[in-house]
Each structure stands twice: as C-alpha cells, then as structure tokens.
C-alpha cells in the first residue's frame, strides 16, 4: 500500500542523488509527445525509458518530451543527445527496444544503428 507518508522516506533516500543529478551535464532522451506520437505509442516508450533509467540508477540522464517534429509517419520518435556527440534519432520505437538503447547507447556510447532514422530511410 502506497501512502503520502512514503514520500518522506523517498525524500530522505533520494536527496543526496538529486544534487548529483542537478550538477551533471548529461544525456537527454527526448520523446515526441504530440497527437501523432501518442497515437503511435509514445506513452509506453517514454515510461519504459523512465523505468530503465531508474532501474539502472543513471544519475546523468533525463527523459523529456517534445512536440511534433514533422515526421509523423516515423513516430514514436526518440532523440538522444549526449554532450560532445551528434544527436541520434530513433524511429518507430517500441518499449521492447528501450533496454537495448539504454544499455548500448546511453551507457556504452554505441548507438543502435538498426533503430535509427538513417537505417529506416
């Protein structure tokens, strides 16, 4: 059973990590969340990234959303930017792909080429 009182425990447990998170200039995972993205399945994709980042306790990664970037046929679209590296765009993303994208790309710095827009086109 979850209760509002749990938040106090979560606060104590996460406070030290919060400052680390704030100070680090890290990876941004951006999910398209316009009508086209949501209809194509962006919600489970975004939530899978949130779960995976939490599971791996990655402090320097944030998961954010954006609107429509004009390529609705490729939704769900996920863009990953890492400081000092070129942006990578993943297309037709499914929740099942998320653990591999996080492991290979976010953690080990090797984009999953077969899921990228370059490969799709």
């Amino acid at each position: 059973m979850k209760s509002i009182a749990d938040l106090e425990k979560i606060r104590q447990a996460t406070l030290s990590k919060v400052n680390l998170r704030r100070e680090s200039e890290g990876t941004r995972i951006v999910v398209g969340m316009a009508t086209c993205g949501i209809a194509a399945g962006a919600r489970p994709v975004m939530n899978a990234f949130v779960d995976e980042i939490g599971k791996r306790n990655l402090l320097n990664v944030i998961v954010a959303q954006t609107g429509c970037i004009g390529m609705c046929r490729y939704e769900p679209i996920v863009e990953i930017t890492t400081p000092g590296k070129e942006k990578v765009t993943y297309v037709n993303v499914k929740p099942e792909m998320v653990p591999r994208i996080v492991a290979d790309h976010v953690v080990n710095g090797q984009p999953v080429v077969e899921y990228t827009i370059g490969h799709a086109e």
């Binding site: 979850k2 979560i10 996460t14 919060v18 939490g54 998961v63």
Partner: peptide, 11 residues
Amino acid sequence: VPLNTPEVLSW
C-alpha cells in the same frame, strides 16, 4: 526533490 526523480515517478 524534483517530481521527475525515478523513485518519485514510480511512487
């Protein structure tokens, strides 16, 4: 603690 902390989101 921000709301987008994974532990908070999960809660």
